[in-house]
Simulated scan of single mutants.
Amino acid sequence: MRIEADRDRCEGLGMCEAMAPDFFEVGDDGRVVVHEEHPDEEHRQDLTAAVDACPVLALKLRD
């Protein structure tokens, strides 16, 4: 699994960080920072919730 983040689309609303703070952070530039691009499968549920919570659809999970 791989996390993809479209930093150009990101508006820094922080929903991903609220849902999965171990994996996402709103950086100093107001855009998402992905801490672990290839997370373990055991985190899929939390990451799916975080991706689905993004109101501007800036995040994707790829297999």
Rank of each mutant, 00 (worst) to 15 (best):
R62T: 14
R9M: 13
D28P: 13
C10K: 05
E4P: 00
E37N: 00
D8S: 15
E11A: 13
R62K: 14
E42N: 00
L59C: 09
A58E: 07
A50K: 02
D8V: 11
T48L: 14
D52F: 02
L13N: 13
C10L: 06
E41P: 06
F23Q: 04
V33Q: 10
E41Y: 03
L47R: 03
Q45W: 11
K60H: 11
D46M: 08
R31P: 06
F23C: 07
D63V: 08
Q45C: 00
F23S: 02
E36F: 09
L47A: 03
D8A: 15
F23N: 00
D40W: 04
G27D: 12
A58R: 05
R9Q: 14
G27V: 06
D29G: 07
E11I: 15
H35D: 08
V56Y: 08
D6C: 13
L13W: 14
L13Q: 12
L61Y: 05
E11G: 07
H35E: 11
A5L: 02
R44Y: 05
F24W: 05
A58P: 06
E17Y: 03
G14F: 00
P21S: 03
M19R: 08
M19D: 05
C10S: 07
D28V: 09
A5C: 13
K60G: 11
D28S: 12
G12D: 10
V56W: 03
V51K: 02
H35G: 14
G30I: 13
M15N: 13
L61I: 10
D40C: 01
D28I: 08
P55L: 04
A5T: 07
D6V: 07
V34W: 09
L61S: 06
V26F: 04
A58H: 04
F23A: 01
E25G: 09
H43M: 02
L13G: 10
V32D: 04
D22L: 14
V26I: 15
C10T: 10
D40S: 10
E11H: 11
P55R: 06
V32M: 10
V26W: 01
E25W: 05
V33I: 15
G27N: 07
R44I: 00
I3F: 08
A49G: 03
D52I: 05
A50R: 01
L13E: 14
E37K: 10
G30D: 14
D40F: 06
H38N: 14
D63M: 04
D63K: 10
D28G: 12
Q45F: 11
P39Q: 03
H35V: 10
G12S: 07
P21W: 01
T48N: 13
R2E: 15
A5G: 02
P55M: 01
C10F: 07
E25F: 08
G14R: 03
R44E: 04
P39T: 00
L57C: 11
C16N: 04
G30E: 12
G30T: 14
G12V: 05
L61T: 05
A50P: 00
F23Y: 15
A50Y: 01
V34Y: 07
G30P: 11
D46T: 10
H35A: 13
D29P: 08
E37Q: 13
G14Y: 03
E42P: 02
E42R: 10
Q45Y: 09
E4H: 12
